[in-house]
Nucleic acid binder design. Structure first.
Length: 615
DNA sequence: GCGATCAGTT
DNA sequence: CACAACTGATCGC
């Protein structure tokens, strides 16, 4: 849950995702996506009054977010104050103090965030530097390298600060299976079930929040069907979603909800109360999307877990995993990183400190020699989804840095003279490496036919789409297009600048595939299903509560700390429990700086187990 | 009576 | 499992 207070240090006159308290005085508002915890104060009467007296204060968001927001009556008063922005189209906004007339210009660019429909990150560029507010996001490793607007020419932009969705910034959440893998697992489960008879139906036990839509569309596509949901109203302008949902209760796949839906399910009823026309009892399974995570060295990823005779939990995450976050940060190398979320069981200072290891060094770069150790880790960062058993995590956080030139902050308006850092080495995901051929993702997805076309062509109708890309999740459900874009209401306070020229020269496919070969292999679990578990009215008591459908391979090393009850659930393993390398300890940044200095000065340095000793 | 906040539930 | 929303109790205006 976001605990971001609403304002960024560099541009304190704008407020993002918070609309109460101090934020009432903002010159402009930004909404990253339509989840309640990012809308605090948004329906406040105080704000409403302020708007009525203002000529310049506006709310900026994506078109889809606008649509979803206005779908809720409580926010309808915003209608005339919302300025929807296209994705990836830098827009200059004047931040005006209406009392004094003082004015500051800032260029904002919306980047797809992959969190839920309409979700975006905001990149601000102005005289206080480039700042990225991520909102909530789930991006795969390497995605930052594919975002044109994080680059200037072939170089990564100089990012002063990142305000980060740090939900899973904790080594415990090292790995979360990719969307593709999760989707494939769910697909197989659903397919195996509904193919058994017309009375076999599936209930997707989704929470009342946006973000599951790509599940609906992909399942709908795969099985040539529609998913039953409570309401279509919010999707009325989103044909690419609308065509896969229905309010026809006769559907085989349901994602409808009811306040007592869990009870209903126990009584073999769907939340919508639907039953078979001829009176034959339905055979219902529930699939509850929930986040599952896996430790650093866990190779097997069980994306489906059976939790009862007819209940399953399926891996699903709205947020990037620890390794995905590290990849993201390692690529951008911001000077500062501020957490928007404090993961459970941690303190704010703790997270900030952990994050500081991913910041560009603030000290004199010449004090650091990156070579000996940096190279080691660099390789890990390149292939985040793979070689998870590598012990090079020893120096986590200090890897990255191929030495990059630092220059002063630009204080001219605009973003012309942004200091450029060198592009990452060839082994890194290339900036703008446009992996546009549909074939490449197929390797990655590893989920057969269902995805090559999941881009749902209508999506491509988006007018602004500058970069031609392979089908991407974020294209699909993050920002989306609306029909009837009569939206171009030009606002007095905003003008569109020309997008930065695309430098999509690279053609090399980034590190997409990883070792997903180790992922699905789902034969095991189809067996379970075809065994056609007895109707769940007969409580099968000898079944354990939790059955892992695809057993772990022997590669989960439980060597040191072998805790039987956790051995099965790799997500219970944490890097705290099982150190990456038995003899290593994670050095504190100060210790490492000291170490690096010694190395730089030619001193001999030895790292011994547990503590760093030097000669 | 409305809204904000918190704890508990799913 | 740890997302995000809903429910109900409590407090204040």
């Amino acid at each position: 849950m976001s605990s971001f207070a609403g304002r960024m240090k560099e541009y304190p006159t704008v407020s993002l995702d918070r609309f109460d308290r101090e934020n009432l005085h903002a010159r402009a508002y930004f909404l990253s996506h339509c989840h309640k915890d990012h809308m605090k104060g948004l329906k406040g009467p105080l704000l409403k009054r302020k708007l009525q007296f203002s000529r310049t204060v506006r709310l900026y968001c994506s078109f889809v977010t606008k649509e979803l927001l206005l779908n809720n009556q409580k926010y309808s008063f915003w209608e005339e104050y919302i300025v929807p922005l296209e994705l990836e189209s830098p827009t200059q906004i004047s931040l005006v103090d209406e009392a004094s007339g003082e004015k500051e210009e800032v260029v904002v660019t919306l980047l797809p965030a992959g969190h839920c429909p309409g979700s975006v990150m905001f990149l601000f560029e102005g005289c206080h530097g480039n700042v990225l507010y991520t909102g909530d996001f789930r991006l795969a490793a390497g995605d930052a390298a594919r975002m044109e607007h994080l680059h200037s020419g072939s170089r990564v932009k100089d990012i002063q600060s990142v305000y980060l969705d740090s939900t899973f910034y904790d080594p415990r959440f090292y790995q979360i299976p990719s969307r593709e893998v999760c989707l494939k697992g769910i697909s197989e489960l659903v397919g195996n079930w509904i193919s058994q008879s017309p009375y076999h139906v599936v209930w997707l036990n989704c929470k009342a929040a946006y973000g599951y839509e790509y599940l609906f569309t992909n399942l709908g596509e795969e099985f040539g069907t529609q998913i039953h949901v409570n309401s279509l109203a919010m999707f009325k302008k989103m044909p690419e979603i609308l065509s896969y949902v229905t309010t026809d209760r006769g559907a085989r796949i349901h994602a409808c909800r009811h306040p007592k839906d869990e009870e209903f399910f126990q009584g073999n009823r769907l939340p919508c109360g639907c039953s078979a026309p001829d009176g034959t009892p339905l055979r219902i399974i529930s699939i509850k999307p929930s986040t599952m995570w896996f430790g650093e060295r866990t190779k097997r990823t069980n994306v489906i877990i059976k939790t009862g005779s007819s209940s399953y939990r399926a891996c699903f995450s709205f947020h990037s995993s620890y390794s995905e976050l590290k990849d993201f940060l390692a690529y951008l190398q911001p000077v500062h990183i501020y957490p928007n979320v404090v993961p459970l069981g941690r303190s704010e200072t703790e997270v900030t400190q952990l994050l500081s290891r991913m910041c560009r060094s603030r000290s004199d770069p010449s004090a650091f020699i990156y070579k000996p150790l940096g190279v080691l880790k660099r390789s890990v960062v390149q292939r985040p989804a793979s070689d998870s058993e590598s012990d090079s995590e020893l120096f986590e956080g200090l890897d990255l840095v191929p030495v990059r030139k630092r220059m002063g902050l630009n204080c001219e308006a605009g973003n012309e003279n942004i200091p450029e850092r060198t592009a990452p080495p060839a082994s890194a995901p290339l900036p703008l490496a446009v992996d546009s051929s549909p074939s490449a993702p197929q390797n990655y997805y590893d989920c057969t036919e269902s995805n090559g076309e999941d881009d749902d062509e209508e999506e491509e109708g988006r007018g602004d789409s500058t970069a031609s890309e392979a089908p991407r999740w974020e294209d699909f459900f993050s920002a989306g297009t609306l029909t009837d874009s009569q939206n171009s209401q030009s606002e007095p306070c905003c003008s569109v600048t020309s997008p930065a020229p695309s430098a999509a020269t690279g053609s090399q496919t980034p590190e997409l595939f990883s070792d997903e070969e180790e992922t699905p292999n789902n034969e095991d679990f189809s067996l379970t299903l075809s065994a056609s578990t007895s109707a769940h009215s007969s409580q099968n008591l000898e079944l354990p509560d939790t059955v892992i459908l695809r057993p772990e391979r022997a590669d989960a090393h439980h060597s040191e700390t072998d805790r039987p009850e956790e051995a099965e659930l790799s997500q219970a393993s944490s890097d705290f429990d099982i150190p990456s390398t038995p003899e290593s300890k994670v050095l504190r940044p100060e210790e490492l700086s000291q170490l690096y200095r010694k190395l730089a000065s030619g001193e001999e340095v030895m790292v011994r187990k547990g503590s760093q000793g030097s000669v």
